[in-house]
Design a protein around this nucleic acid. Structure first.
Length: 462
RNA sequence: UGGUCAGUAGCUCAGUCGGCAGAGCAAGUGGCUGUUAACCACUGGGUCGGGGGUUCAAGUCCCUCCUGACCAGCCA
C-alpha cells in the first residue's frame, strides 16, 4: 500500500493496486448499501470516485456524515469504473475523516461568483477554477525561470526596499520605522528622514530595472522576477498594488533584439502552458473562456505584428469616428486604441515601437529624429499592455540632457549615470506583468483572481 | 479618483403599477437509486447594505452614506 496523488493515480497503467489517497470531499451520493465519495486533493483538476461500502468501519458514524469540504484519507483498491465519466475508482477498505465541515462552510458544490470568492481568499483555492489558476501560476513561474536560464540569463535579486527617487512619489509605498505620533522635524518643518532607519526616505520598489541595468552591464544578460509595488489608486481588472514582475535586461541588445526576446518569451510561456497544463487549460476553455485554446494556439504558432507608433497612429486615425478619444500623432495611445489594434486590426499580439519621447520615460534611447525614443509595448487581445520595454539611453550626455528636460536631478542618479561613464554599452530590457501573463494563459477576466491574496485599494485582508 | 450599474435567505437570483417576502441550490428529516454539481417529498432559514424622508402603506419612490462590479485614467 502506498500513498498516491490523484494525478498519479489517474496515470496508472492498470487497476489492481491498493493505494491510499488524502484529500477533501467535493460531493457525496448515498446508495442503499454504499456511498459514492468524490475526492479532490489539489494535485490536478480531476477528482477520484470512491466507493465506500456500508460494511467498512465507521460507515454510519463517519461516511454518511461527511459534508462537502471534509478532509479524508481513503485506503482501497483501484478498479476499473463500470460507471460513465471516469476510468478508475477506488473500492474503499477504510475511510478516515480528519475534519468535517459545519453547515456554514461557505463553499458549496456549485458555482460561486469570483467577487464572493475574493472575500474568502483563504478558502477559494479549494474551488476548481482558482485551484487550476494556482497550479498554472506555479507552472508559469517555473517556465519563466526555465526560459531565461536556458537562454543564458542570470537571475538577479534586486532590492525590495528602494531609495531611488526615480519614480513619481505618489506611487510609492513608504517604508519607515519612525513613530507616526512623534515624527522628527527638520528646521523647515518637514519630516526629518535622516532620523529614519535608512537615514533617508525609503519605499517599496516599483521596478527592479535600474538595478537590473547595473547587473546587465556586469553579467551580460540578467532577469529579475519578484514582487513589485504601486500605490496607485487603480481600480481595474488589470491592476494590483502588489504584483510580480519579470524584468530581463541585456547588454549589447538593441530594440529589435528586445522585441525578439519579448516575443520569444511570451510564445514560450504559452507553449509551456499548452503542454504542461493541458488539463487545467481544457477546463478554462470549457468553463471560463471558450476561445482560449484557439487563441493560445494562435499565439504559439504565429509571429507577432510589429509596427511603429507612427504607423499605428496612421491606421487608427482612419477609424477615429469609432473612438471616444481621437488619435493624433503625439498623443498617448488609450486602452481603446491598443485593444482596437490587437483585437480588431490584427487579431493577434502586436508590438508598437518608437514612441514620442514626451510620453515615455527619461531613460529610453533617443532616436536620431530627436522626437521618438526606442520604446516598445507588447499588446495582446483581451488585456492590452502585457509588456513595456525599451532600449536604454547609454550615452551620458544625451541622458543628462533628457533628465534636464523632465526636471530630474542628476545627483540623485549618480550611480545610474556611472553606468554610462564606465564602459557604457547599448542595452535593453522590458517588464512583463506576471499576473497579466496569467490572464492571457487562463482566460480569467480579473487580475485579482490570478494571485493568491490580492492587494488593491482598500483590500489587504489575509 | 471620475462615470455607469448593482447590493433581497448560507450561495445564485426573481420580485410587475407602492399593497401578506419568493425560487433553485445549500442545511435538517425521510424515501429511492452504480450514482455523476444524482433524484423525489417535507421542514427550518430574512436588519430586503446602513441611516433619514415621502406615504394609510416602501424591497419598490426621494436624499445620504457604505460596499462591490464594470468602463476610464495611472501602468505591468
Amino acid at each position: 500500500m502506498n500513498t498516491i496523488s490523484i494525478k498519479e493515480l489517474l496515470r496508472l497503467e492498470k487497476a489492481g493496486n491498493t493505494v491510499q489517497i488524502n484529500g477533501w470531499l467535493r460531493t457525496r451520493r448515498d446508495s442503499k448499501t454504499f456511498s459514492f465519495l468524490e475526492i479532490y486533493d489539489g494535485s490536478c483538476i480531476a477528482t477520484i470516485q470512491v466507493i465506500a461500502p456500508d460494511s467498512i468501519e465507521g460507515y454510519d458514524t463517519v461516511v454518511v456524515k461527511m459534508a462537502t469540504g471534509a478532509s479524508v484519507s481513503v485506503t482501497g483498491v483501484v478498479q476499473e469504473s463500470p460507471g460513465k465519466g471516469q476510468r478508475f475508482e477506488i473500492l474503499a477498505q477504510s475511510v478516515v475523516m480528519f475534519g468535517n465541515t459545519p453547515a456554514e462552510y461557505p463553499l458549496q458544490k456549485k458555482r460561486h461568483s469570483f467577487e464572493f470568492l475574493r472575500e474568502i481568499s483563504h478558502l477559494r483555492a479549494r474551488t476548481n477554477t482558482i485551484g487550476a489558476v494556482m497550479r498554472v501560476r506555479s507552472a508559469m513561474s517555473y517556465a519563466v525561470h526555465t526560459f531565461f536560464q536556458e537562454n543564458g540569463f542570470f537571475y538577479v535579486h534586486t532590492p525590495i526596499i528602494s531609495t531611488s527617487d526615480c519614480e513619481g512619489a505618489g506611487s510609492i509605498f513608504h517604508v519607515t520605522t519612525l513613530d507616526y505620533d512623534k515624527m522628527p522635524r527638520n528646521p523647515e518643518g518637514g519630516v526629518d528622514f535622516t532620523k529614519d532607519f535608512f537615514a533617508r526616505q525609503a519605499g517599496l520598489t516599483v521596478s527592479g530595472q535600474l538595478e537590473g541595468e547595473a547587473f546587465a552591464l556586469s553579467l551580460g544578460k540578467v532577469y529579475t522576477f519578484g514582487p513589485t509595488f504601486r500605490a496607485e489608486n487603480s481600480n481595474t481588472p488589470r491592476h494590483l498594488a502588489e504584483f510580480w514582475m519579470v524584468e530581463p535586461e541585456a547588454a549589447f541588445f538593441r530594440l529589435p533584439d528586445d522585441m525578439d526576446l519579448a516575443e520569444k518569451f511570451v510564445r514560450y510561456c504559452v507553449r509551456y502552458a499548452l503542454e504542461k497544463c493541458s488539463d487545467d487549460i481544457a477546463f478554462f476553455n470549457e468553463r471560463i473562456e471558450t476561445q482560449l485554446l484557439a487563441r493560445l494556439e494562435l499565439i504559439a504558432s504565429n509571429s507577432f505584428e510589429r509596427l511603429s507608433y507612427t504607423d499605428a497612429v496612421n491606421i487608427l486615425q482612419k477609424h477615429n469616428d469609432t473612438f471616444e478619444y481621437k488619435v493624433s500623432w503625439g498623443s498617448d495611445l488609450q486602452s481603446e486604441h491598443e485593444r482596437y489594434l490587437t483585437e480588431k486590426v490584427f487579431n493577434r499580439p502586436v508590438i508598437v515601437y518608437d514612441y514620442p519621447k514626451e510620453i515615455k520615460a527619461f531613460y529610453m534611447h533617443l532616436n536620431d529624429d530627436g522626437k521618438t525614443v526606442r520604446a516598445m509595448d507588447l499588446l495582446v487581445p483581451g488585456i492590452g499592455e502585457l509588456i513595456g520595454g525599451s532600449e536604454r539611453e547609454e550615452r551620458y550626455d544625451v541622458l543628462i540632457n533628457r533628465m534636464g528636460e523632465v526636471g530630474l536631478d542628476p545627483a540623485s542618479y549618480w550611480w545610474y549615470l556611472d553606468l554610462r561613464k564606465y564602459g557604457s554599452t547599448p542595452h535593453a530590457g522590458f517588464g512583463l506583468g506576471f499576473e497579466r501573463l496569467l490572464l492571457l494563459v487562463t482566460g480569467m477576466q480579473n487580475i485579482r483572481d490570478v494571485i493568491p491574496f490580492p492587494r488593491y485599494p482598500g483590500n489587504a485582508e489575509f
